[in-house]
Amino acid sequence: MMEFFNDYRKLYSSALGLFLLLTVLVAILPAFDNQNNNGPLPNAVALQGEALEGKAIYVSNGCVACHTQQVRNLEMDRVWGARPSIAADYADINRMDLWRNTATLMGTERTGPDLANVGSRQPSATWNLLHLYQPRAVVEESIMPAYPWLFKEKEVVEEGDVEVVVPDRFRVGVNGKIVATDEALKLVAYLQSLKQVELPGTMPAPNFLYKQEKKEAAALATGAGETEGLDGAALYTANCQSCHQANGEGLKGAFPPLKGSSVVLDDNPELYVEVIMNGYDAHPEYASMPAVGTNSKLTAAEVTAIMNHERTNWGNKARLVTEEEVQKIMDYLKQTTKQ
């Protein structure tokens, strides 16, 4: 046996042979297989135009270092998307150009949130632009880098310019108006395009694994009508706070305050529920609100918890709404939007 390995040709070619064989088996063949046997979903829209150019900016700035784009089939990932990501979601991603490889951008670090479905979770362009200019203007605890070089300073806002209203304490040294460059707009267009495509009716979604057994058992025990198990404050943080802020005061010129808001405090919660579920664009001085409730598939219980949190905090004092009440309005809204 040792004689065999005393011949350097035999030794090195057998080691190389084993390595190549395994390489073909575990990497190249599966890669070919996945490339050739997966296609995009029928509802999928191919990435193009501004969004496609925006992806190049995303790649070039190394956003993948902190942001994943994959909803794993784990219960804990349900916050990032309605269903686990599947091979078809990535099937339409091809080589970028002669110089650069395919960028599926799945990522391996989640220092920041997952972005697989951010186009549904946070579609507001106003929010995204302000967040890019200075993340800490909207999320105080954020450690994301600021990208001021994607914006320019102008004396006068011209037609077609998109102005970003930045709170004063983040405008140090800036005298004019802050206007988004094309690059910033393209990057936001890309982020807005990141939406999970709905599966065709015939196709079952994969299950989320490792479910929280305790919570479900608790929910069953207390009856489906109770909202006690839900933490309104946490739901507010996850779904509303990035715009309306922890103190409920919003941001001047961008996001309206909830503190003392007539919509929030109204005894009749119909408009309130409608705003949460379908969005709102009644005030030109503020950005339009996306359909947060529908996009994040919030249940009546969750909406109720959020509403009650907002109605009883920051000095707000309104009566608590019940889940039945909210459910009724949601059912009505569903019917009217379908028609």
């Binding site: 190389l16 990497a27 070919f32 490339q35 997966n38 490889n101 395919t102 599926t104």
Partner: peptide, 24 residues
């Protein structure tokens, strides 16, 4: 030898669309 092999496998584009890229 292996470092050369993996570099070639990593940069040849023929099987790197979609999930092929992730597997590689």
């Amino acid at each position: 030898m292996f470092a050369i092999v993996i570099s070639i496998v990593a940069y040849v584009p023929s099987y790197q669309s979609g999930l092929g890229e992730t597997i590689i």
